[in-house]
Computed example of a mutant assay.
Amino acid sequence: MEPRARPPEEEAEGRGGGEEKERRREEGREKKDEEKKDEEKKDEEKKDEEKKDEEKKDEEKKDEEKKDEEKKDEQKKDEEKKDEQKGEQPQPQPQPLDRADLDKALEQLDAEDQFQLGRPQGRQVPVEKDW
């Protein structure tokens, strides 16, 4: 096959147009580089904004937590004041009972309890394994 004939403009480019093509390529590369830099700047700005937003949200959460804690503290103080005004003292925690006292207390409760359907029966089948 014979090479096709090119118009004269293309022939001129083929001979001396190599420099022009190279210049255009360089311009295209520069434009692409500038676009990439612009995109990177935009990305960095977005990241900075996101960081600022996150910091604001964190600060808001901390402020809310502080407010909640202050409210709880105020409620506790109010409750203490009410208790003091009533003249009531907080009840002490019950002392742990030993086994003998516990059995005696349970027997006493059973004696006081009025079972509506009669006294419950114990377990008929012996326990196979006690954990």
Rank of each mutant, 00 (worst) to 15 (best):
E44N: 00
R4P: 07
K81R: 15
L117C: 08
E65L: 01
A105M: 06
R25H: 13
R123F: 15
G122P: 02
E34D: 12
R23G: 00
Q114V: 11
D33Q: 08
G17F: 01
E45K: 07
D33K: 10
E65Q: 09
P7L: 08
E84G: 04
K21G: 10
D83M: 12
K56E: 06
Q75C: 06
K72C: 02
K76C: 10
K76R: 15
K42M: 02
D98E: 10
D101P: 00
E69P: 02
E88G: 00
E34T: 02
G18Y: 05
K57D: 14
R23Y: 05
W131C: 05
Q75D: 15
G87Q: 03
E40I: 03
K31D: 10
K32G: 05
D53R: 11
G14L: 05
E39L: 04
D58L: 08
E19F: 03
E74G: 00
L109F: 11
E11A: 05
A111N: 11
E65P: 00
P126F: 00
K129E: 15
K66P: 05
G118H: 02
G118I: 00
K56R: 07
K57L: 08
D53I: 12
R24Q: 12
M1H: 12
E88M: 11
D53E: 15
D98T: 04
E22A: 09
D43A: 15
E70I: 00
D73G: 01
G87M: 01
E10D: 09
R6M: 14
L117N: 14
A5D: 15
D53H: 08
E13M: 11
K61P: 00
L102D: 07
P90D: 11
K104R: 14
E39I: 06
P96Y: 02
A111C: 04
E50T: 04
P3Q: 06
K86V: 04
E64T: 07
G28I: 02
P8K: 09
D103G: 00
E84L: 10
Q89L: 15
E79V: 03
E44G: 02
E13L: 12
